[in-house]
């Protein structure tokens, strides 16, 4: 079975985020594999392993030639990657992202299953996997917290407001996975070394047959008017626990009449 995993390379969420003058996210520092995507990569590796053969292929896009995050996922065990790298992609909205990724997925032969995280940690639109399914005209199951494949059918526990729905779909299909669906492995030293020489098929938007003026900020159909600071929440009283801090909490709750 061949599985494609959509992954995103993002600025380290532990660093304070910043915007460029055109309101796009600053991506000049070191980019890392979005932690949310490590779950999809792990899931794909396990499914291929269980199926007894096949490849895990990564698909990603970036406005520059960035591959450091891809190397992390390759080090985990993915076989190869397709990177759509094009300055025209700066400022791309969710729909354009889906169109580009869908076209890139088209370059991978015999994809049975397409996995993605439910949402990226930086943009967090949470719509791209379902939009990819829409563009490719494939069935989809989102917000998966458990995934199994057998006999050409993917079975998924899909998160709901009340619990979960047991769902199934014939392959090929798109499935988005929640964090925690599996425990991502750490790349081994051997894996890290091997990743350096794994193939990364780097293409431009034009290579995919997509008009560069139709994607990116110019084609997004939406325009950022301004970015303003939100009203700040003031810090209140901060005390050091002297063994009696719990009483302070009780007093506070009493004052709010919630006890």
């Amino acid at each position: 079975m061949n599985v494609v995993v959509c992954v995103k390379q993002i600025p380290d969420p532990a660093d304070p985020g910043a915007l460029e003058e055109d309101h796009t996210l600053k991506r000049t520092g070191k980019l890392i594999l979005d932690e949310s995507d490590s779950f999809g990569v792990e899931m794909a590796l396990q499914l291929v392993d269980k199926a007894g053969g096949g490849d895990v292929t990564l698909v990603s896009m970036a406005p520059n030639d960035e591959t450091s995050g891809l190397r992390t996922a390759l080090a985990m065990g993915a076989a190869k990657a397709v990177l759509v790298s094009d300055p025209a992609l700066a400022g791309a909205g969710a729909l354009d992202t889906a169109k580009v990724l869908a076209a890139a997925i088209g370059r991978v032969e015999g994809a049975d299953l397409i996995l993605a995280a439910t949402e990226s940690s930086d943009g967090y639109t949470g719509t791209v996997p379902e939009q990819i399914a829409g563009v490719l005209d494939l069935p989809s199951i989102t917000f998966a917290k458990h995934v199994e494949v057998a006999d050409g059918t993917v079975s998924v526990q899909r998160q709901t407001e009340l619990g979960y729905d047991q769902c199934e779909s014939p392959l090929p299909a798109v499935v988005s996975v929640t964090a925690g669906v599996v425990e991502p492995r750490y790349p081994s030293f051997k894996g890290i070394m091997a990743a350096k020489s794994k193939p990364v098929d780097q293409v431009t938007v034009a290579d995919l047959g997509i008009d560069a003026s139709a994607v990116g900020a110019a084609g997004a159909g939406q325009q950022i008017v301004e970015v303003t600071p939100a009203p700040e929440r003031q810090a209140g009283e901060i005390i050091e626990d002297d063994g009696e801090a719990h009483l302070k909490i009780i007093d506070f709750l009493d004052g709010l009449k919630v006890l």
Partner: peptide
Amino acid sequence: GTTYDGRDTAARLSVKLDKPVITN
């Protein structure tokens, strides 16, 4: 709403109509 079905439906609709969806 930014709910499970809300996000799915908005996403599919955006593809069908070729219009952006702005989330969250």
